[in-house]
């Protein structure tokens, strides 16, 4: 019986407090704006902070109560913007999706190590303190996963070869990894741009090449061969202007060190379907390499040697008169 007293006392205490709180909760109930709840439900709930507000709830309040812009949620993309537009009655402004890309291919196979990192704290920012990381290239991804740890979408993994890999389908464009990377090798690029110079090395070619076999050596071959002049070599590094790039992929075939990687490997060529062509010259005007011949009101023709398969004419033609067919590349 004596053992029961403490249990009873504590139980009574808890019960009293519980009843008191339940009563207070009723008494002090706060009416919330139902729109805030609805907007919050429409948001992805990742609480990544990419919108600039403290969490999804903060953004929901800003949208519902203070009339904030509805286009700030990059993880949700256009889907969420449409939903918010429906809820708030504002115009949906479609935004181009950007994704994080690691501007380095320096895995342990291709880049030399300058020492063995044996530190207790295996983070990039820590390794960076010792001669800029264990990889010989001063501009390389260190590969201890600072970006992977901050990624709210689990889109980043560290591969076996000591290089961060971003799953671009999972990326929610919150830019947290960009801020976390001590080497600043992560950049946000538009999702539509398929080709990127995956190197951040700004050292002179001999040094870069000595440390890493896939470094950009700033030879300028890509810039010379680019049909739309989208590539500029500046400070010993080539960079593709994503605004100008038409995703033809010529640069990746020309690069001697394979520093430019791209997603498309099948090259295409345009062909005019003569029955449908009305001779409007729209395709010829949009072609970046002037590969389409033919005057106004005449049937157009594609010069196959010049065509880079960018597909701009295919998108432009209103009459389905252009087909993209596979091209067999010999190189």
């Amino acid at each position: 019986m004596g053992n029961l007293i403490p249990i009873i006392v504590l139980g009574l205490l808890g019960l009293t407090m519980g009843v008191f709180l339940a009563y207070a909760a009723k008494k002090f109930e706060v009416q919330r704006d139902p729109l805030v709840e609805k907007v919050n439900e429409a948001l992805p709930g990742a609480n990544c902070g990419a919108c600039g507000y403290p969490g999804c709830m903060g953004y929901a309040e800003a949208v519902a109560l203070h009339g904030a812009e509805i286009g700030f949620c990059s993880p949700g993309g256009n889907e969420v913007i449409e939903k918010l537009a429906e809820l708030t009655g504002k115009n949906a402004v479609a935004k181009e999706k950007v994704i994080a890309r690691i501007m380095c291919q320096g895995n342990n196979n291709v880049v030399k190590k300058q020492y063995e990192f044996d530190g207790e704290i295996r983070t990039c920012s820590n390794a960076n303190l010792y001669f800029g990381g264990d990889k010989a290239c001063m501009y390389s991804c260190i590969g201890y996963g600072d970006c992977a740890r901050v990624c709210p979408a689990d889109a980043i993994t560290i591969g076996d070869m000591g290089l961060a890999i971003i799953d671009e389908d999972k990326c929610i464009s919150c830019e947290k990894c960009v801020a976390a990377c001590p080497k600043k090798v992560i950049r946000m690029v538009p999702e539509k741009s398929k080709f990127t110079v995956l190197c951040s090395n700004r050292e002179k070619a001999p040094v870069a090449k000595k440390n890493c076999s896939v470094a950009c050596i700033a030879c300028g071959l890509c810039a010379k061969n680019c049909p739309v002049n989208a590539i500029e070599v500046k400070g010993n590094l080539a960079r593709i202007d994503t605004e100008k790039c038409v995703n033809c992929g010529i640069c990746t075939t020309k690069c001697p060190t394979n520093a430019i990687e791209g997603k498309i490997k099948d090259f295409k060529v345009a062909e005019v379907v003569e029955e449908k062509c009305i001779g409007c010259t729209a395709c010829a005007r949009v072609c970046p390499v002037n590969a389409i011949e033919g005057k106004v009101k005449e049937k157009h023709k594609v010069v196959e040697e010049k065509c880079i398969g960018c597909g701009l004419c295919f998108e432009k033609c209103k009459f389905d008169a252009i087909l993209m067919k596979e091209k067999i590349v010999v190189n």
Partner: peptide, 28 residues
């Protein structure tokens, strides 16, 4: 009841409930 040894846990219970109450009151 000579239950002084329950002091800490009982007090924490009370303080936690009070904080909850204050939170509700301030929100309102």
């Amino acid at each position: 009841y000579n239950l002084e040894y329950l002091q800490t846990i009982a007090f924490i219970l009370i303080i936690a409930s009070l904080v909850q109450f204050v939170e509700m009151a301030i929100e309102k």
